[in-house]
Design a protein around this nucleic acid. Structure first.
Lengths: 220, 220, 220, 220
DNA sequence: CATGAATGAGCATTCATTCAT
DNA sequence: CATGAATGAATGCTCATTCAT
């Protein structure tokens, strides 16, 4: 028997073509997909990607482990979809902020950090996974996402430089270094923020905006 | 990530009894213990605690997996010892800084953040594990360590309050909120700092001190 | 390889009842059945029966796996139909050859082997499955087919004996043993023959006829 | 955490360095390795490689499935070791025959086919796997083994040509085609020969030698 | 101290099959 | 006829841990 097939099957995938149907009970497909993603988010968040099992996610959904594979290709695929979705939303924030009109560079920075953190507080699980479990992606996808993340770095660095030119912030500041500290402040929120805890979303987001402003040597 | 995994197995350890023996060749024992810890550090850093196997560590040491169990009680035990050791060192920095004489609160903060980050850049692997894999500890030990970490929070909050009173920093600042942002800036270094990369240790540590100063609304 | 796997599930098949219907579009039914068989042939040939999945066949047909079960009862059922079809065709060759008039036993043998091999070269996939995957059939069906195959053995043995009597071949020859060698030569073609390769169909079939002749100690 | 590890671990393998020890209970290692191979042979022969499970082999050995992995890297690795071992033995036969002195090409052919078949009848399971399941090997290893097998083809072709030159066999014979038929006769033995059945080993091996002789148009 | 062998539980993944719509 | 969703059992494989020697 000529077994020249050698693995790479690329079989015509189950889902996919399904988009845009109208038959009764349809669009449930999309709903179910989202349920799967949500269940995975919950499980990955509470156990960590590595320690979470596909079984856990199936349990969360109330289906059998095997059935879950109707919706996913692999556990890693699930992580990827999660991270990708999250990235898209985080990216949207950048774009919103970039699109604001009549806003100076410092205020744009304030907006960016404020909104990102507000998003984080409202999507703790997703952001925790986004920042904690990126490494578990396969090399290719990881590099890809990392590349995409770098856009945010550049965005902030550019704004700092503009703010320096505009005299809005201390001209002594090293944008390339400072951006890292700023991202740390912003990202780490996923670790200490507790919904219903000591701080409200607005406080945290407004607080960060002010923190950013001061840390750039500007008057808030 | 809130790991609820719980295996707290405080078995009376072999080494427990072994501590402080005087039999010839004992110094070797301590040396070997450290080698084990170092190997674990290396492995946990590169693969992540969850994905690292006991086999990996044995390989790193050049012994058999079974033999490793002469030195450790469990994989989690190894993580604990690592985190404990790291904490001790991080704690020592706090104490050093607290012991400095003739230093105002703002400068003490500068010292604290500067030294912590310098330590991070020089002990990347350990700090990465410290901040990334704490959740993998059994519930009891995790809570314990978290409690210990909170001392640092309090230390910084107190210093900020003192600095406010001393008029060294902006009195409007919310110390309880700001401490979180500051820790974010400091901690996240383990993620972006690359030895031999764009930034030198001193730059990063001096840079953070300045960042902290400005973010508190003080003149550096 | 002696497969003891046994799942003999002779369920009354849907198509059983379906046979001989006249409803409009019925010719399409037969057409579709053949398409299914052809798809299965292709897939079983390239992946091997055991490693081929029902999904693979559905993909090949461009329908969903579930839909395939309208046409088949089980994967094994598909294999059976394939092998049965193949056997029928192979049997037809025997009968053709048996029906030839005015042909001596040696020439009949030449015809038989020549035609069988010509058929093999033109139906590589089917013959490969026929000779390679028979064992995967349920015990009952396997024994059945093996019994049917034995007719060919007897046919050849009888012809050899006749040829011996007719003085066409060496009388020392042990027909019972030789038949096995001859079948080996004939069957193994499915393993080494490559369409479009070094040898043409006619060469291989004429070549085998000559080989058979010589191996029986006759002059070609 | 810097997860640049990216899978390929090549960990220092368990077995391997073990060869050549003298401690009591040692050399059991080698014995056990052979037991594993034998169990696999038995199981792969009776169920076919694809349908045989690692569990089956563990059962055969009376150990747990997980324990089996102390001895093997993967199921395919087991198949490879089996096929490799078999090939070595088959190759040894070729070399023995090649080393015979004072033997003409035709007699060398008789020896080769006779001995190969004798080996087959005495190692039915191994040879069945060798000829039936080669395709299941990974692409690289499969090609490797196929390349090695081709040496046998060349060996036989060369002998036929020499025999033609020596006038021992019909000069009309196409060696390149005939070799395929001959191998078919020889190989297929694994399918019809039954130990303790109608034919004895010597009969089958002597019978094939004679068959080969005649099929080359020579007097036996 | 160290080894080699084994355990047993768990895991991601596949797959033939079913069935309501 | 066809789809989409689910089932449930099996599969190959990993791994922390144990323990006699």
């Amino acid at each position: 028997v000529a077994s020249e097939a050698d693995k790479t099957k690329t079989r015509t995938t189950k889902r996919g073509a399904a988009a845009g149907r109208t038959r009764p009970g349809r669009a449930n497909g999309a709903r179910r997909e989202q349920e799967v993603l949500d269940a995975a988010t919950k499980v990955f968040y509470s156990r960590g990607y590595s320690d979470a099992s596909v079984q856990d996610i199936a349990d969360e959904l109330g289906i059998l482990k095997g059935s879950l594979y109707y919706y996913i290709d692999s556990k890693e695929d699930l992580l990827f979809r999660l991270l990708d979705e999250t990235h898209e939303e985080v990216q949207a924030i950048l774009e919103e902020v970039a699109a604001l009109e009549g806003v100076g560079p410092l205020d744009r920075l304030r907006e960016y950090f404020g909104r990102q953190v507000a998003y984080t507080t409202r999507n703790l699980a997703k952001m925790a996974i986004y920042y904690h479990d990126l490494d578990q992606l396969s090399a290719g996808r990881r590099k890809d996402l990392n590349r995409k993340r770098r856009v945010h770095e550049k965005f902030v660095i550019d704004l700092i430089e503009q703010a320096k030119k505009a005299g809005e912030v201390d001209s002594e500041i090293d944008a390339n270094l400072t951006v890292n500290y700023l991202f740390g402040s912003m990202i780490w929120v996923y670790r200490w923020y507790k919904p219903g805890g000591k701080f409200k979303t607005d406080q945290v987001s407004q607080g960060l905006a002010d923190f950013v402003t001061r840390s750039l040597g500007a008057r808030s």
